[in-house]
């Protein structure tokens, strides 16, 4: 994956997160390496469900609790983008 495509996915996902969760910030204010849950954006498990739904609609990605990567996927915008880039449309 080249750098440009990674940046596209990150900004796309930042927009998806802001729109899905009605966050009061600009997508480019989400720091790619900052934690999404707990600290950082302070998201919670309800948000995880909402995001999972948005991911399945936008990228046909279905999250599973027993995916070994599940904790990693939501850890930051960057890791979420990497996961989506690997699995989108598959």
């Amino acid at each position: 994956m080249n750098f440009d495509m990674k940046a596209t996915t990150e900004s796309e996902l930042a927009r998806l997160i802001v729109d899905t969760l009605h966050l009061e910030l600009n997508p480019d204010e989400i720091v790619p390496d900052a934690r999404l849950f707990g600290e950082g954006l302070g998201l919670d498990s309800i948000d995880a469900l909402e995001l999972a739904l948005a991911l399945s609609r936008s990228y046909s990605i279905e999250l599973k609790s027993d995916d070994p990567d599940i904790k990693e996927i939501f850890s930051s915008l960057r890791s979420l983008a990497a996961y989506v880039a690997r699995h989108r449309g598959s």
């Binding site: 498990s45 469900l49 279905e62 999250l63 609790s65 027993d66």
Partner: peptide, 9 residues
């Protein structure tokens, strides 16, 4: 007692 959180689960 298996996973049951996401719709897929």
């Amino acid at each position: 007692h298996g996973p049951a959180f996401y719709p897929h689960d």
